[in-house]
Simulated scan of single mutants.
Amino acid sequence: MLQTLKQNWFSNVRGDVLSGLVVALALIPEAIAFSIIAGVDPRVGLYASFCIAVVIAFVGGRPGMISAATGAMALLMVTLVREHGLQYLLAATLLCGLLQIGVGYLRLGSLMRFVSRSVVTGFVNALAILIFMAQLPELTDVTWHVYAMTAAGLGIIYLFPHVPKLGKVIPSPLVCILSMTAVAMYFGLDIRTVADMGDLPDTLPVFLWPEVPLTFETLAIIFPYSAALAVVGLLESLMTATIVDDLTDTGSDKNRECKGQGVSNIVSGLFGGMAGCAMIGQSVINVKSGGRTRLSTLIAGVVLLLMVVFLSDWVGQIPMAALVAVMIMV
């Protein structure tokens, strides 16, 4: 028992803490952006990312994988939010979680072993293209400072690991974010920052029950969305788990991951967050920054909340160019 606890949580403390910091910084603008896509307040995405990351660290089946609010899930919510509002989205999130738990108990996650290597490769390449394309708006119609900072950030990410001693201790994406933020603040550069993405929350999330009537009419409204969210969320999560398995040369429990995704989405819905799933981009950042155990996922979630609530003035000054460089690295 103690040996398993140490292996899953404390076998790589330094690497997990540092990688968790990197992931938390990179999660903030994405959570805000996905909230905007879904048509909800940025706090909904940020609270979701915190709740899902923290819960999945304990109940997920793939140590070191990052789960939070995602773009794929946000796109499925647009119509529901527009036609029925936030409360129905929270109810759909709860039902989505219940459906995912059911999938886990039916052991349907085991079917992932029948997915061919070519399908996984295609999935990874397609996501790589989408992640890169998603960065282009931050590099369009901007000043030369943005291009210079992005190029400098990429240089730091790829060259810093070769620095004697320090290169193997501190994740280069973290060095990129901190150094580019310092440069932007020192020279007072007029470039797009995290604060320009939307308002950051100033309070901790609180428990709330969706204010919707408990009727079959409500169920008829939310069920199609919940089912779609459950299927898409599990497909992306299980694909990402397979990729992290390959990157770390370790195995994972896919059925436990299905249940874990369900539990985390239920908690998210009860604390005012939207549904989410595993994120391949953030998971790769975590692994490449040295994250290996559940501690890295927990650190990412906790630090995310602490930063946006208590250090929002500082976090808001992070230049988007630095985060673009990190995402291009993915």
Rank of each mutant, 00 (worst) to 15 (best):
L86G: 04
N125C: 02
S110K: 15
L108P: 13
V175N: 10
V308L: 02
M112T: 09
F10K: 04
F207Y: 15
P29K: 11
F58S: 08
L295S: 07
F34Q: 07
L305E: 04
P29I: 06
S67F: 05
L189C: 15
G269N: 03
D41L: 09
G85C: 10
F310T: 10
S252F: 11
L90P: 02
F271S: 00
A126Q: 00
L25A: 12
H162R: 14
T150R: 10
P201N: 05
V103F: 13
V13M: 14
Q261P: 13
G45D: 03
V142H: 13
D190W: 03
W144F: 15
G290A: 11
L75H: 06
M320F: 05
C51P: 08
M133V: 13
R43Q: 15
G281N: 09
R14E: 10
L108K: 07
T181Y: 03
E83M: 11
V40F: 08
I299T: 15
I191M: 10
G85L: 06
V55P: 06
Y88S: 10
L136H: 00
W144M: 14
S49W: 03
E217W: 01
P137W: 10
F50P: 01
S110M: 14
L235T: 10
M274E: 06
M65G: 00
L270T: 01
E217M: 11
T248N: 13
L304F: 14
G273W: 04
Y47N: 05
N265V: 03
L235S: 01
P173Q: 13
S11Y: 06
M274D: 10
